[in-house]
Structures are given as structure tokens and as C-alpha cells.
Design a protein around this nucleic acid. Structure first.
Lengths: 404, 404
DNA sequence: CTGAGTTTGTGCCGCAACTAAACAAACTGC
DNA sequence: GCAGTTTGTTTAGTTGCGGCACAAACTCAG
């Protein structure tokens, strides 16, 4: 088994080969009707019709026979394609410094139900994941829907293929915890069907935004976001998450953005991590971080509420300059066609979009690569939706096999 | 033309869909026999046999019916598959600071003929490319082989989709020269058939090494190389060159590797470009660059011949440390599973491989990503072979369509 | 030398995914 | 009310490929 047998897809396993792409088009909202499904897939109307009928028979999508108020165009109105509300769901879970949350997510990134966010995170991943999966299982029982998989977002790099969390420091878990296996075990124990997946939260945010949010249509999407501490990055290439050869790509926190900056635990100085995260903003603005709220919320509130205060404004501008320097470095390496920002970086972008774009353009090397659009993340619960995307992926790749 | 019509491959255009992958396997030497072709493609023996027969009928490969000295294994010996020596070729061209060169390259990266390297490069790209294409056309007439395309490697970032050379400074061409169109015009004018492509030389080096050299089998291959001035990078993902959304990815020359270093024209300080190129090596070793040889050759000779000299050794170690810092930054962003180095960087690696690997491991963040193998480029004329790969790509993607 | 075992190449059948073409349906506009 | 346009459906035909059976070419044991 040295990789020679490259997934021998026998005829029997294969099913209709356009089924997956068709479902993905409906899932991402790019195929509102059978007519555009035909052109997007590059097949005949006969095939598109058969594919849509098969997806409908699988209980995944709905074909509205009632023409409804057709658009003002000529010709016979096309039937609308949409995700079936009563179709299967996946269990999505998210763990962050504030607590954890579980949700059921349908096709199209539709959040069917969420548990109330829990505020406590313990040092034992098995306990936390057991609770969050149990919450999800409760939602599932209440809904009566079929579950086809589970996905988990954690604020840590996740090494592949082991599925271990390498730096879950801000949630007090031990480094190297086998989160993927723990999560999968919890899922099985709770009687939830389907495979279980685990990923880094910023990666999953990028995936969710690419499919349902600000990243739609981008071919080379770069996402940079800060949670409570540290900075994460992600890259979505041609619709697939690029997480490197062992899941550790886009660990952008240690780009140098301020050679005279504060020391970083990595051994360097002025890393993006310690220069542009919420704590950096609060200390640069000479505010004492309080214990009652998360650093992210404190920083965001300060930025929005007191932007008139010169100290706050100067701190914001300093962070924007350093973030811009880091983004420019990434632009020179990755040449994305869109950048989206999350967490405090999103707030910084909205505080002074022109300044950030100017810095990036100034420090990027050539041509259009410097004028790449920079947008804020738009999706609510984006890493939760991203965790769901992970679980949906097998269904999108091969609906027949995944639902069998 | 907003990308909606995704290459409507009608049944007639499509041909045998396993044809391209099969040719690629033979081309890269991964399918020495029909038996391994069967397992690599994941098809039945019947299909593999039909595919091989079709490739043979197209005049691309040869199926040795004579079993020859079969390996010591049991069972019926498999017929050997190999590239047909008298099959079609592509015209490959390379321009660098020392001059230019043309070659004919067959499948498998086999150099069929090369022109003598010319030492003069003029400031007018049309004149240079006219001469190099004319040299290639001469080789082609002398060989009597069929030509299916042309590829050009230039020491400059090439912006897509325009095909303009953004920074061909070291060969004294005007920035923004439309090299792709100029090359294509020269190719047409010389009566050479097939499409013409242009790419950055380091990108093409990486592509060539991935298919025929030190990068074989890597899934995420990072290549960093220095020519006479400046540093270039390239990334090959799953066998395809990743050049970003507009061809400008992996412009790694302006990573900061020495905060107190020399100023760079980009506005920063201590960029990889000015800290690890041949000129940096010569000046760090306190040698006066002479005019008689290229900087690359002077630096390489100095490194190999006088490594016992403390000044030379210290300069090499300083450059290795800075290169290592830059590579570690790239490892954190790209998480490659192999790194290959070319030009002076290759010489630095061979001078002290342990030191370089230690620096990269020390400054990479976690786990195996820091112990990524670092190897020297092995292929002679690698950017020339890479330029040929560019021209071969349409044939590898769809042999029937490309040869029609 | 012979026959059993093993691996590879090939001919034949049939499935199923698709195209092509003709037709039917549902709209708009004159 | 009819022509024009766009969409959905039916039918027939094509084809790439899996499955199978068999033949071919080797090794090895006795």
C-alpha cells in the first residue's frame, strides 16, 4: 500500500459522475435552475435533468415544479433548484477560547439548529468534545433529521495525517492532543452516523466564506484572521482547502512585520502574531485588558466605540500598517485574487479600509497583485459552517457512495 | 466569457479519457510497463492495453514486444513502454544574463539537440527572441522531426494573462515587455507549428525537476534558486505549477531575512534578494566581482575552491543562515514536503547541508514541517527542460486534441 | 522435461453515462 | 393568435470501460 492503487473506482462505486459537481453547484448557490446547471456542468439538458432527478430522489435537493414568478426573460421558465430543507444534516462543532458550540448544518450552509454557546472550556479535550458532541446529539434527536457526518473546528494547527492539535494553547489543551481521534470516538459513542473530521478554525472559516460568503467565486482565496490570541491564515485554491503536505500551511503568525517589535516566543521579533492580535491592540492603545470579556470583544468594542480617541486611532493605524506589511508578504508569495479578513483584522479593515489597501499595494511587488481586493468576512458562525463543509465534502464528492 | 462555459467537452472531442494520464506516466518515467500502467491508472488490463496501443498509434510511445531480459520476477514478463525517440519534439528556449540557448526536447525530458549557447543578449527582446527561435528552427529542420509547440524561459516574473515580463532587469529588457506575444510571433514567423508558451525560469526549473529530477514524487514541491542576481521561488502542487492568480506567486525575493541588513530597492532591508544572491556572497567574502565571468560562476567557484579561507567560509555560513531563515518562513506558509535549491543556493546547500537543515528546522514552527528534505537540483538545463514541459502540457492533457 | 503456479496481454460482452435529435411545454411579444 | 424563444422530456445511438474468460510467457519444483 505505497500509494500505487490510486482509488480504483470500479464501475459499481462510481455512479453518475456528474452527480457530485451538480450537488456542489446547488450547495454553493451557483445553480438556481436546471438551465444554468446544464451550462455550468457543460452537459446536455437531458443529462442535467437526469442528474437533478437523481439528487431529488436521494432526498438532497428540491425541484420546484410550480414555475413561480419567473424572471422577466423570454421562453419557458425554468424550475427552481434548491436544497431540501428536510434533507440530511451534519453535526458541526466549534471550540474556542470562550467556550464551545454545536450545531446542525444542512446543505447550502444553512444552520438548522444551534446549541447555546457554552462558556467554559476545560483542559481535558475528551471532556470538552464529549460535551459538545452530546449537545449536538441532543439537537439531532430533537430534529429527527438524518446525520451524514460530523466536523469540528479547533483554534490550533491540526497535523495531518495524525489529526493532532499542535498548539491549542489558548484553550489550555495539551499540545499534540489527538483531537481528531477523540472527536471521532465521541461521535461514535453518541451514536452519530457518518465520518468525523477535524480542522483548524481559520482554515474552516476560509472554506465557509469561499462557498457561502465573501470568498465566493475566488480562485485563490487568502484568509487571515485573529481570534483572541495569535493570527491564523488559510488558502483556498480552486475550491479546495490548501493545508500543505501535513496540514501546517498558512501558519502565518510568525511573519516579521516590525523588526524593532516585541519579542515573540518563536525566537524572533515583531511577528504578526504578537503585533496584530487583540492583546497587541489593547496594549498599544495603553488599555488594561479586563478579565470580564474576551480579548477579541474588548478590542473590537474599543476600536468601534472610541475610534475618536487619538491613542486608539494611533494604535489602530499601527496595527493596520503591520497587518498590511504581513499581507503584502503573503501577496508576494501566494498571489491571491482575493483576501478576506476575520476577527479583529476584519474590524481593522472596516475602521480604515483605504489605509490597509494602500499599505498592501505599496509593499507588494508588481502589477495587479498589489491591488487585490481585501474584504471582510461576512458569514455568521463561519468556522462552524466550515466544520460542516468538511463533513459535507464526501457527499459533494460522491453523493451515492456517501449516502449508501 | 466569464468562465461559465467550463470547456464543454463533447463526446467527439473527448477521446479516451485515460489517454492523458497514461502519457504523463510514461513521460515522467513512472510507467515502465503496461502492468504498472494498469495499476497506476486504476483501470483494467484491457483498458490499459487499449490506451497504450492508442498512444503507440499516435506515434508518441513505443511498446517493446521483445520481452528483453525480464526482471527476476515470476510470471509473464511485461512489455516495456518507452518514449518513441523519433516522435514529436517541442522547441525550448532559454534567455538568461549570459546569453540564450535553443533546444529540441522530446517526451521524457530528453534533449534531442541544442544550439551552442550564445553569449550576447541585447536590449531588444524581439531581436533576441527572433534569433533564438531561428536557432531552434534550424535544429528542427536538421532533425526532420515534427514540432508540436514551443516554450520559453525568461529570468523575470511573467504576468498572466498578459504574458508580460515584469522585471527582466538583469537582461536589460524593458520592464513590461510582452514577451509571450513576441515569442509567439517569432515562432509563427519561423514557421514552427503548435502553440507557444512563456514562463519564469525558476518556475520552469521547478516543473522540470518535479517531472524528471530531484522533485519526482513530491506532492508539494518548493524550489528556491538564485541566478546571477536576485532570488526566485516556485511551487509545484500535485504536479501542476502553482503560479498564483496572475502568475506572480512565489516572488520570494523580498522576505526579510536580516533586519539589520543592506537596503533593498523594494524599500525594505535585508531582503532575501540582496542577502543571498551571488553578489551578496562575493561582497560578504570581501571579493571584488570581476567582469570576465558571470557573478554566479564567480560565486560558485569561490565557494568550491576556497572554502578553507575563513572569510569565504564565514560568508557562506552567513548566507546559509539567512537562506535558512527565508526557507523556514516559506515552510511555515507553504508546508512543502520537499525543497530543492538551484544556482548558488544549491552550492551553499552542498557546502554545508547540516547547517542549512538545522537553521530551517530551528525556525520552522512545528513537527515534521521543519524536517522537510532539502535537496539540490539535479537536472542539467533544467529551465530549458521546464520550458519544454510547458509546451508538452497540452499534449499531456489531451493527446488526441493536441496532435490533431 | 513436465506440469503447476503466477503474472501479463487480449478478445468479447454488457452496462451505464452520456450526446444528439426530435418533440412537447411554457412563457413573451407583436 | 401566432411566431419566436427557452426549457424539459423522450428516444435512440455511441462509447469508454469493467468483468470475464482465455491465451501467452515466464519461474519453479520435482
Amino acid at each position: 500500500m505505497n500509494g500505487k492503487a490510486t482509488t480504483t473506482r470500479t464501475k459499481l462505486e462510481r455512479g453518475r459522475s456528474a452527480l457530485g459537481p451538480a450537488l456542489e453547484l446547488v450547495h454553493t448557490g451557483r445553480a438556481p435552475t436546471r438551465a444554468v446547471l446544464t451550462s455550468e456542468l457543460g452537459v446536455t439538458r437531458a443529462t442535467a435533468g437526469a442528474v437533478a432527478a437523481e439528487l431529488e430522489a436521494l432526498g438532497l435537493i428540491r425541484v420546484d415544479s410550480s414555475p413561480g414568478a419567473a424572471a422577466g426573460s423570454q421562453g419557458r421558465p425554468s424550475h427552481r433548484l434548491s436544497v431540501l430543507e428536510t434533507g440530511p444534516v451534519v453535526l458541526a462543532a466549534q471550540v474556542h477560547a470562550d467556550g464551545f458550540r454545536a450545531a446542525l448544518v444542512g446543505l447550502g450552509g444553512r444552520i438548522v439548529a444551534t446549541s447555546p454557546g457554552c462558556v467554559a472550556v476545560m483542559a481535558d479535550p475528551a471532556q470538552v468534545l464529549g460535551e459538545v458532541v452530546e449537545a449536538g446529539a441532543g439537537l439531532l434527536r430533537a430534529s429527527g433529521l438524518r446525520c451524514v457526518g460530523a466536523g469540528l473546528a479547533v483554534p490550533s494547527a491540526v497535523a495531518e495525517p495524525e489529526g493532532t492539535a499542535l498548539n491549542p494553547l489558548h484553550i489550555a489543551w495539551p499540545a499534540g492532543s489527538p483531537v481528531r481521534d477523540i472527536f471521532a470516538a465521541c461521535v461514535r459513542r453518541a451514536g452519530i452516523t457518518g465520518p468525523a473530521f477535524t480542522g483548524n478554525d481559520v482554515n474552516l472559516t476560509a472554506l465557509a466564506e469561499h462557498r457561502h460568503g465573501a470568498g465566493r467565486g475566488a480562485q485563490h482565496l487568502l484568509c487571515v484572521a485573529t481570534g483572541h490570541r495569535g493570527v491564523g491564515g488559510a488558502l483556498v485554491l480552486d475550491g479546495r482547502l490548501h493545508s500543505g503536505s501535513s496540514g501546517l500551511a498558512l501558519e502565518v503568525g510568525h511573519l516579521t512585520v516590525n523588526p524593532e517589535g516585541r519579542p515573540c516566543h518563536c525566537g524572533g521579533r515583531g511577528c504578526l502574531d504578537v503585533e496584530t492580535d487583540p492583546l497587541a491592540f489593547l496594549t498599544t492603545a495603553r488599555r488594561e485588558p479586563g478579565p470580564e470579556e474576551s480579548l477579541l470583544k474588548q478590542a473590537g468594542n474599543l476600536l468601534r466605540a472610541e475610534y475618536d480617541d487619538p491613542a486608539v486611532r494611533q494604535a489602530a493605524e499601527a496595527l493596520i500598517d503591520r497587518l498590511g506589511l504581513g499581507l503584502a508578504g503573503l501577496v508576494n508569495i501566494l498571489n491571491p485574487d482575493r483576501i478576506i479578513l476575520g476577527g479583529l483584522h476584519r474590524d481593522l479593515l472596516e475602521a480604515d479600509p483605504e489605509r490597509l489597501r494602500a499599505v498592501v499595494a505599496d509593499r507588494s511587488l508588481w502589477g495587479r497583485s498589489g491591488s487585490v481586493p481585501i474584504l471582510p468576512c461576512t458569514l455568521a458562525h463561519n468556522s462552524l459552517v466550515g466544520a460542516a463543509e468538511l463533513a459535507w465534502q464526501p457527499v459533494l464528492d460522491d453523493p451515492l457512495a456517501a449516502l449508501a
